[in-house]
């Protein structure tokens, strides 16, 4: 995958930088789509968990807290 576009120098020297590669266009579109799908999925899961009272990422209970709860 090319990051840049080059044109060949008419004087036979090294290639001349002429801009960003348009092959990257699809990756920027994909990045937008991934961000949208990820946000929608996380939001859907957190809202559903909030309604049912489930902790998605339960907090680790420390030994002292457990002892207090039992005691």
């Amino acid at each position: 995958m090319q990051l840049f576009r080059y044109s060949t120098s008419i004087y036979g020297g090294s290639d001349v930088l002429i801009g960003a590669s348009w092959d990257l266009l699809k990756w920027f579109v994909l990045a937008g789509a991934v961000a949208i799908v990820l946000h929608a999925a996380i939001k859907a899961v957190t809202v559903a968990a909030g309604r049912s009272g489930i902790a998605i990422w339960p907090r680790r209970v420390r030994e002292t807290e457990r002892t207090t709860a039992v005691g």
């Binding site: 930088l17 960003a20 348009w22 990257l24 266009l25 920027f28 579109v29 937008g32 961000a35 949208i36």
Partner: peptide, 17 residues
């Protein structure tokens, strides 16, 4: 042209969001 092109493509991502 590189800066113009990269910023324009990143703008597509931002507009989608």
């Amino acid at each position: 042209y590189v800066v113009h092109g990269f910023a324009a493509m990143a703008l597509i991502t931002m507009v989608m969001i």
